[in-house]
Each structure stands twice: as structure tokens, then as C-alpha cells.
Design a protein around this nucleic acid. Structure first.
Length: 280
DNA sequence: ATGTCGTGAAAGTCACGA
């Protein structure tokens, strides 16, 4: 099974590109972020014509996440348990949740499409929200894997954190000044891994960015950031046989500012395609 | 030049988020 994650930065603006990529690369499960629309505005037809089921979660023009899958999408979850909310510049226990997480079981994998809050600026209420959101995600991960240690769980998406200095090639993003590279954000990312996950792409693709700002010739200068990840539990990580970061998707007409990331999975006997043709 | 995008609301441009 081939699984991909992609911050598409508006699915309506990029549906042709997105579906063409999924078909060309034989993607079985595509986890999208920043669809920037409500479900009733989602361009389902183009996906369905290409053989994909789609589940989308969006509340307005901001954020929004979706899952497209060739196999049926089961046990859909909108938001993860304990996910904090945010409204009008302030977070709080009563603030409504934003459209930043959708999870489902597809092809034997519990997969999440996640759009971690940006943080905006150090000291901004949105920055505290980002850290709380990440801590809640860590708790959800820990609880889920405590209950079911062998679960093939994957947390994919735009984490809005560059975990190491090598993951930040944008000269405007400076430690001590900017979000995405601050020690608390990096500690929150590491704590998430410590809950029982690993970065399943980095061992196979050790370098390379996943995002380049539209401004200031960031892509031609290759001044990008690595902020999109496919994290996996032990059972998921053990099944990964290959990975790719599709840098070429940042090129051409009207690209997203992020590129898709792909992993190939061999989940064993659950994958009928791998069974021998005994009735040949 | 905060040097580019996408969206919605009001409108033929602006505010917002990234």
C-alpha cells in the first residue's frame, strides 16, 4: 500500500494537480491538509472519477483536512479526543475546535491527517495554542498505543515544526525570533515521538525540504523547510519499505507551497495483492 | 517592498492567515 500526505493549500485551486499526482504515483491513501473549504464545497467528483473515496472536514475557508482512499474509509474520527480549540485570538476549554484533524482506518492502518497550528509568533496566543495542541496529540498517541501497542498508527501532515537546524533553510526563520524552530516547539515534537512514534521518511530520505514560502524566490534558491512528516508507530514503521519527497510538485503552474510525501507499506498477509496466485 | 498566495466580504479592493 502506498500512503501520501500533502498540504494542498486549497483543494479547489489544485484539484486537478492533486488527483493527477495521486493517479500517476499510484497513491492508495492521500491525507490532505489545508483544503480551505467546507465539505459541501469539496470537489468530490474528480476524486471519485479517479477511483477514490473521500472524507473531508472543514468549517470555513481556514484549515480543513481530508482523506482520499481507494479502499473504503472506516471508523472516521473528526478531531482527536482532547484536541484543544481556539477562537478570536484566544484559546480556552470552551473554545470551539478548528478543522485540523481527521482520522480513519484504511487498509489496516489507523491514519491521521493533521494540520498543526502555525503559532504565528513567539508569545502570540496562537503559539501557546500550538504547544497545547501538540501536547494533547502526544497524550492521544500515548493513550492509543498503551491500549493497543501493536496498532499500525500513522500521524501525517503539516506539523509546522522544523525539528533540527538542518530542516530550516529559510533565512527569515531564526531561532529566538521565529516560530517553527523554537526549543519548546522542538521539545513538543520530540515528546510526540517519545510517545511511541518515529519519523518513517527520514531514515530513507535523510535530507530535503517539504515546504518553500511563495515569497522571496524561496524555491529557486532552495530556501525551504522540512515541516511535513509521516510519523508511525512501531507496527507502521516496520511495514515501511520505501519513501519519497516529491520536490517536483513545487514546480510548474500554480503549485502548493508544500510538496507530497509518500511511504510504501508492506503490511503482510492483510494485503491480498501479495498472496500467490494459487488458483492460477 | 511584508516583493506570494488563497479565501470571503464587499466590491472593482481589502482583511486575514500562512
Amino acid at each position: 500500500m502506498r500512503l501520501a500526505t500533502w498540504n494542498v493549500n486549497s483543494i479547489r485551486a489544485r484539484v486537478v494537480r492533486t488527483v493527477e499526482f495521486a493517479v500517476r504515483e499510484s497513491v492508495d491513501v492521500l491525507l490532505m491538509q489545508e483544503i480551505k473549504c467546507k465539505p459541501e464545497q469539496f470537489p468530490y467528483a474528480q476524486f471519485e472519477e479517479a477511483g477514490y473515496h473521500v472524507e473531508a472536514h472543514g468549517l470555513n475557508q481556514w484549515n480543513g483536512v481530508a482523506i482520499a482512499s481507494r479502499e473504503p474509509i472506516e471508523d472516521l474520527e473528526v478531531g482527536f479526543p482532547g484536541m484543544p480549540g481556539f477562537l478570536k485570538g484566544h484559546e480556552g476549554p470552551d473554545a470551539p475546535q478548528e478543522a485540523r484533524a481527521i482520522g480513519a482506518t484504511v487498509g489496516g492502518v489507523r491514519a491521521w491527517s493533521l494540520y498543526v497550528p502555525n503559532g504565528r509568533a513567539l508569545g502570540d496566543p496562537h503559539y501557546a495554542y500550538k504547544l497545547h495542541w501538540l501536547d494533547a496529540l502526544r497524550q492521544y498517541t500515548r493513550d492509543t498505543l498503551t491500549r493497543d501497542p501493536g496498532l499500525p498508527l500513522s500521524l501525517t501532515g503539516d506539523f509546522n515544526i522544523a525539528p533540527t537546524d538542518a530542516d530550516n533553510g529559510d533565512p527569515a526563520v531564526v531561532e529566538g525570533v521565529s516560530t517553527h524552530v523554537s526549543p519548546p516547539e522542538r521539545a513538543a515534537f520530540q515528546a510526540l515521538l517519545d510517545a511511541g512514534l518515529s519519523d518513517t521518511v527520514r531514515p530513507l530520505i535523510p535530507t530535503g525540504f517539504t515546504y518553500w514560502d511563495y515569497k522571496q524566490l524561496r524555491f529557486p534558491r532552495n530556501e525551504g523547510m522540512r515541516i511535513d512528516f509521516i510519523l508511525g508507530s512501531q507496527a507502521f514503521a516496520d511495514a515501511v519499505t520505501g519513501a519519497a519527497i516529491h520536490r517536483n510538485e513545487r514546480k510548474g503552474e500554480a503549485p502548493s507551497d508544500h510538496v507530497p510525501i509518500v511511504v510504501d507499506l508492506d503490511l503482510g498477509s492483510a494485503d491480498e495483492d501479495d498472496l500467490p496466485m494459487i488458483f492460477g
